[in-house]
Design a binder for these strands. Structure first.
Length: 275
DNA sequence: CTTGCGACCTGTTGGC
DNA sequence: TGCCAACAGGTCGCAA
């Protein structure tokens, strides 16, 4: 569920609330999404201090004293929730972290796609980031219109929307923001990436940066179950132009927004002003 | 190497 | 009202 703006919102909230804290205890209630046994997981975390919070693509990276990094992927329904120490876990709370200073961090995940992985910080690049084959960060200096154009050409036989979702040409864009960025740039989601004109590539590059930056600023999008680290909804759901708006008039041309299935994903677009 | 599709889970919704 | 298929914000592994 969470795409870059939602993951980045959670990261920023935890940056100012849990970084610097010590992990007092860890309660694993469901161990099926850990990469080590529950016993080892607890042993490597208890007593450690949280030194940093980072993000690469949709991965959250918490650097710990002792040389480990906790890698978190929220996938569709995962949540990291900072709650009061008297809050009861629910049936979807898989891990409870008690921190110094009376706060508790819950890892909840209804669908159990999300995971908590522990790696030696020295191994992150070699074992986690590198093998993923990630493209550049959309809000970083490595995302440039000319290299984006070259990357789109390289995978040019794929339709543009599934290619955006693949994280190969740029990371952090998921099902909501792919539909929103393609609408803003007037590009049909099923266009072969290789057929995009130079000005369309520049426009898409610009839309990705502007929409993601704006969404981060207002706390991401809550279409359904997404909540930030304080359990609050995002503000971008009010800005959506096509996602979840099938049957409503396009704000640019008045044509009714259509929903189709593309690459197995629900896809929303304006049949008139997206070419 | 690229592309496409089913699998992984649980919960909700809409149609009959 | 009840049942059941389809769908949900993401990858991942495997086949062609």
């Amino acid at each position: 569920m969470p795409e870059l703006p939602e993951v980045e919102t959670v990261r920023r909230q935890l940056e100012r609330t849990i970084v610097g804290r010590r992990i007092g205890s860890v309660d694993v209630r469901f161990s099926g999404r850990l990469n080590v046994g529950a016993g080892e997981f607890v042993k490597r975390l208890v007593g450690r201090r949280i030194l940093s919070s980072g993000r690469r693509a949709k991965l959250l990276l918490f650097g710990l004293s002792g040389g480990d990094t906790l890698v978190v992927h929220l996938k569709m329904t995962g949540k990291l929730l900072l709650v009061d120490s008297d809050q009861e876990p629910n049936r979807h709370t898989h891990v409870v972290f008690r921190l110094s200073g009376y706060n508790v961090l819950f890892f909840d995940d209804i669908r159990k796609f999300g995971y908590l992985h522990l790696f030696r910080t020295d191994d992150l690049e070699r074992l986690v980031i590198g093998p993923a084959g990630y493209g550049p960060e959309p809000l970083g200096p490595g995302f440039r219109a000319d290299s984006f154009a070259a990357d789109l050409k390289r995978f040019g036989r794929s339709a543009i929307k599934p290619l955006l979702l693949s994280q190969k040409c740029v990371v952090g864009v998921g099902n909501i923001y792919s539909d929103e960025t393609l609408w803003r740039s007037g590009i049909r989601p099923d266009r072969s990436a290789g057929t995009l004109e130079a000005d369309e590539v520049r426009s898409l590059h610009d839309s990705i940066r502007k929409i993601l930056r704006r969404s981060v600023r207002i706390g991401g999008t809550s279409v359904d179950s997404y909540r930030d680290a304080f359990g609050r909804r995002g503000g971008y759901e009010r800005k959506l132009e096509v996602y979840g708006r099938e049957g409503h008039p396009c704000s640019r041309c008045g044509e009714l927004i259509r929903k189709v299935r593309l690459g197995g994903r629900g896809t929303h677009y304006c049949p008139k002003c997206q070419k």
